[in-house]
Design a protein around this nucleic acid. Structure first.
Lengths: 143, 143
DNA sequence: CCATTTTCTTGAATCAGTCAAGAATCCAGC
DNA sequence: GCTGGATTCTTGACTGATTCAAGAAAATGG
């Protein structure tokens, strides 16, 4: 778990000013991986008191731009954020409840990054989303 | 290119009623791959006269559910539709202009479908999105 | 401690997509 | 061909995530 000081260092390291909303939001992302914006706003308010939702949106965008958090948004879902960045990992998403779990890349270090025909695009990332049912929904829905 | 009759057969084959808005929408998806809902509404109105946007939303959902079209929605984009279904292909998305192109799967018939740790999810699909810059944006932005 | 710049608050706006109720349409069966 | 019943379309309002804008507050360098 990251302490407040660690979070401060991360922010300064990214040339970002250290403010309460930022510390709180970044901490919340670390503590609640794959949380949506609304949940993060809730977590921030629990730990640090009232903060405007706009501030959290701004902070999350700044953190994403700085590369301190990653934003993911599976089809039909709202934006979610996670602190695991820099490694090449992917996600499994439950079609029923929308829960997200991490999946390490199955094919080496720069996996799947070779498209069969790249149409002359300059590709810099291959994002893999696995779709299915989580164990709970599987049990609830299946036989 | 599909004729009206072909489209009719597709609809009947999927046990869907054949209505003008449906024929028009399905035709539009065939003629404009990766078009967003707004564009499809526009195309439908050009070919068949006024249709409510609600009807197009309903039709696209019905077609998607029936498996006649596929809905894709890259992060930060609105929903887009394509008629290529059933084959396992993926997409390249331009980070700058949002244009989408098809990419055949690089790794065989059920590609990338093997997650390194599936967290006991019952996975039924692996969706790959390649991110980068299209040739045009590459030229416009890069040196 | 001050000035400058960035960030936060407040409040309104946008936009894709959805909900709901009634009118129109499709199609199976006569 | 008509008719009944179910599905689909029209109209119009609404939701909810996200963004815009302007001024107040706070953080950092000097």
């Amino acid at each position: 778990m990251s302490t407040t000081l660690d979070v401060e260092k991360l922010l300064r390291g990214a040339s970002l000013r250290v403010t309460r909303p930022r510390v709180a939001a970044l901490t919340a992302v670390y503590e609640h991986p794959h949380a949506d914006t609304e949940s993060i706003i809730g977590a921030v308010r629990e730990n640090f008191g009232e903060v405007s939702h706009q501030a959290v949106y701004d902070v999350l965008r700044a953190l994403t731009t700085a590369g301190l958090v990653r934003r993911i948004q599976p089809s039909g879902s709202v934006a979610r954020y996670e602190s695991r960045v820099g490694d090449n990992h992917h996600h499994v998403v439950c079609r029923s409840c929308g829960v997200v779990a991490d999946v390490d890349c199955a094919v080496g270090t720069t996996p799947c990054l070779t498209a069969s025909d790249d149409h002359d695009f300059a590709i810099d990332e291959a994002e893999v989303t696995y779709w299915g049912l989580c164990p709970d929904c599987s049990t609830a829905l299946g036989s």
